[in-house]
Every structure is written in C-alpha cells, then in structure tokens.
Design a protein around this nucleic acid. Sequence first.
DNA 1: AGCCAGGGTCTAA
DNA 2: TTAGACCATGGC
Length: 216
Amino acid sequence: MDSSELYLLLLSCYGKPHWWSDDPYTVMVQSVMVQNTSWKNVEKATEGIGDKLRPETVEKLSQGELESLIRPVGFPKRKAGTIRELTEWYERYGYSRSEVMAEEKDILRSELLMVKGVGEETADVILIYAFFKPSFAVDAYTRRFLSRFGYCFGCDDEIRKFMKDWLGEDAAAYGFFHSLILEHSIKKCKKDPDCVSCPIKRSCAYPEKAGTACMN
DNA sequence: AGCCAGGGTCTAA
DNA sequence: TTAGACCATGGC
C-alpha cells in the first residue's frame, strides 16, 4: 500500500479536513505556539490575542506584552522571541503571501530554519499551510502512523521522499494528509484504540507489532 | 499527583 | 553525534 492509498483511505473515512487557516500569519504564530503544547492552549491564547493577530500589530508590541498574550501556551519567553523573529522575516517580504510564494521553496525552508525556535516540523507546517509550498511536515503522529503500517524509515528525510514519490509535490495533498493523520491519531485512536468501527484497522489493530523499533 | 501535549536549543561526553 | 536537561502551562 502506498501513501496515496493511505491518504484516500483517510479521506473516505473522515472527509476533507479544514485547512489550518486561510491567514498565513495565523499559521505562523500558531505553529510556534502549538510546540509541545495542546491545541486547547493555543485556542485560549488565540482568543486572548484577538484582533492583534496581525504582523503590523505584533511588530509594535513590547516583548513583555507579547509574552503575556501567549502565556497560556507555555514557554512564553522563548516563543515570544521566535514569533518576533518570524515576524521580522515576514516583514522582509512586505507581509505579502504572494511575495513569499514567489521565492524558491528550498530558500524559504532554510530561512525559516535559521529562525531560533523554528525546527523542521514548524518550518514545514508554515511552508505548507501558509504558503502552499510542498515539504511534508513530519511529526510524531506521522512516524507512528506509518510505522503501524509496517513502514520503516531511518530519518524524516526518507519520509518526505516517500510522500513526494507517491503524492507528488502537492501542498494541498500534504496539508490534508497531515491533518487527517492528526485527526485519526487524536480523535479516533485515542478514544477507540482498537478502532473497531474504523476502516483503517491495520493502523491501530496491532500497535505492539508496529515497526517502531526500527524508527530509532 | 503526575504525566503529557502536534518541539527546539544547548550542552556535555 | 547523540542523549539528556530545560523551557512552563493546562488538562485529565
């Protein structure tokens, strides 16, 4: 079974998921806030930020103001610094999505990785959901999901290549697939580990036999 | 009560 | 090069 079959299976099971956000800056800020934190905390912080969730506004906030706005997600000092730096990066593109999209994907990815507090997962989430640049966002759920199907990967680069080989360079497919894996992992697997009523039985039926050992 | 949540950086060996 | 400490809050 290749990854496009897995993708279609998830699609037929859960339907088309919502895109992260239509607003690129919201994706940037939330992708940092969600690091090692539950989505619930992100919602709470987003609520508090309200209409200040724009680069032109955040740019003018003091470090302390920004820290208190994002406090509910934890690690306020570190994350506030990352958000500021990310905002400065976006400013270089005139806060314009199309300006960013005009740049090469690999260039953008390395620029994002230079921002302190942005690692590969966060960079790829931003590339896909904010700027429609296809670099699959590999997270813990993706690794676990794939290994439960018997796939064995040595590193995340191999997973990205696997996605590229089977899905092509398709940001929409990457975004939806990633969301579906998340939905399946959290909303389904967690509440119903045996997945008795779930068509995607193989991904959950034998977790103890999963190839997690070879993921290292 | 303690553990984990959609991570990432820095340091020590 | 890699494992472990650390950052910090909310929910169950």
